[in-house]
Nucleic acid binder design. Structure first.
Lengths: 205, 205, 205, 205
DNA sequence: AATGAATGAGTATTCATTCAT
DNA sequence: GATGAATGAATACTCATTCAT
């Protein structure tokens, strides 16, 4: 998208180039971290000149933002599909956990890239560029799943907010383990997390 | 510590300057992130010229490494003191959780700085500079606390490794909430986490 | 040669820029010496921004190494051409002396630059960066020319090693005279040196 | 010598300190070259603080100039003593060569330091700081020795200027060989140089 | 549609010098 | 006499961005 032609729909080849560049950006971010992922490095991996990146993306910010958006969208779709038509809140939560952790394992580079971007990309004023101003939508979504279980009496009297934070923390930490801890057993971890959450949400007898 | 005079004990004023610079580095890291925390920015916050930072620290690496070391040491001391003389593993774990979360809340900038350093500081070869080569000692410590409870029959048959990862994730995520989520209720979160862990570790009846 | 695209053959314009920058580096080295020849100074002389130098050369080392290599190659070619098809060792030596001194006079700045680089460029560990580890090839070459004359009986019983050192010293000192001593008469010096060497090498009667 | 008390005669301890610092400067220059010989390095070798060097010398320039002067003076004295009362010009020249080369070998670090200083110390405008504006006194002295031999008919019709340059080159190159060429045989070299010069100066028969 | 070329601000680090104590 | 402390300018190098071709 050249800056002098806005709002023009992107052609197929344009989209292909953008996708290719984004893929290379993800690889660079996953392998070299945020500061190692210069436009030069990304262009090198894509086998194109630096100018190409600037040609297809308004700037580094747009590229990173697009990566962030895409991975989020794919993760959201994967999770939605997994829990889509379940009715029992306990089954929903179980599906949520399993879907999250398996997406993590199967898209490790993407997740690592997203973490790098979200934690490091900054505006000139120093603030995190991709911090959503209000409520964290990921957290809010999980919280609503938990609240639904409480409302139907299927879950006990937990603090749905705190539980949402706790669960997200337990999920997010897994990507750090998956890379760099070869002994990490994702299956065992998933089972354990599912058990712990199941226990925690079970209504008092 | 000037680099041209090694092994000399540091004078009081030297230590004071070093501490001041480290404090400013922590503030910069917490507010502006790793890439925003240039030596120039740190010097600016300390109200001194850039050269002063290089005068008291052999390089940026030493400064960041010292920050990392100091905060870790203080956190470790705080936690050790809290759980020092407890015998019941359940009490130990509860103390561990509470000590971690309260240290987090009371030293938020320090924790944020440590996270920035640990996640971003790289060696010239691209590897994380402060990654411990083998086992993560923090994780190993927590795992040993859990294992002790299992060995004495005080805890049930949980996977101590997975539980350790889960708990660390739940703790580490809190710093992200504490900054940027004004509605985050640390006390409620602590209670919830203590309850969840207590439930998870309780032996089967 | 941009550092992000290796092994690619250099285009014509690339070579031109590199040559221009090397020329400016040589001038700076000849006029201001090693320590005065910063990349900024070289860029200033080339009428480009500092970044351009880094764009065409991987670093200062590559630039200086290339200058060294180029001047050596040109000097070697000039000398080889001059003495190429001579058979009589005495004629070879005479040609060697004349070729060296005339190359010196006609490429004074280049020689001065090479001397500055060879004597001052250091590796981070403090050792001379461009010192050849073993035998000095220039000296060895001259020594072999002298030895050839001895072996054929054309020269007397001189110590070929010592004579080589002596002759190189007499040649190298001329660049210092050529700059800074306006009264220095290169032609007279060449004649004198040729005579002295001729006398010294003449077999005892 | 503090700058606020000029022309004051130096005390004994002052001279001792100056001598010590100069000795350390010579060692640093010989081992690390000009650019490696920072005031910090010199002070470190002397076991004093950087300030001390600035206290006893008006600046780096004065220190280096003093080193230059001292070594020259000692070399001149050594040579003068060796050839002092000889009458035969041939004996004088022989003594000159032997005295120069043996002083070189016995004061290698000093000579190396002098070469580093003379070749590298620059004024802000880029010109060599310690270049004597007019005639090189060392060269002029040697030339006068040669001329004396010619005038008395003891030497043949050589160009005394060219011969002086040639001989100085042959002498100066030896320090480069002495360091870095472990196989260099100074005695053989001295003999060879004496022979060559003797031959060159011998009057035509 | 893509490239090569160039810029300029920014990075950590080094160093001679100054000065109060 | 001597030191520790501080400065500010200079160093090589990196990088996102721009632009003519």
């Amino acid at each position: 998208m050249r800056s002098d032609e806005m709002d023009r729909p992107r052609t197929f080849t344009e989209e292909a180039r953008r996708a290719q560049i984004m893929r290379c950006a993800i690889e660079a971010l996953a392998e070299l971290g945020f500061s190692g992922s210069s436009l030069a490095e990304i262009a090198r991996r894509a086998g194109v000149s630096k100018g190409v990146v600037s040609y297809y993306f308004a700037g580094k910010d747009e590229l990173l933002g697009q990566v962030l958006f895409d991975v989020y969208a794919r993760a959201g779709a994967a999770i939605a599909e997994r829990i889509g038509h379940a009715n029992d809140p306990a089954v929903v939560i179980r599906g949520y956990l399993e879907a999250n952790l398996s997406f993590l394992a199967e898209n490790l580079a993407d997740i690592r890239a997203v973490v790098e971007i979200a934690a490091n990309a900054r505006s000139p004023d120093g603030s995190l560029r991709f911090a959503v101003p209000g409520e964290d939508p990921v957290l809010a979504h999980l919280q609503s799943l938990l609240q639904a279980g409480k409302d139907t009496g299927r879950f006990g009297e937990v603090d749905s907010r705190s539980m949402a934070v706790l669960i997200r923390g337990a999920i997010d930490t897994a990507s750090g383990r998956l890379v760099g801890d070869p002994a990490f057993d994702l299956e065992a971890y998933t089972r354990q997390l599912v058990d712990v959450v199941d226990l925690a949400l079970r209504p008092a007898t």
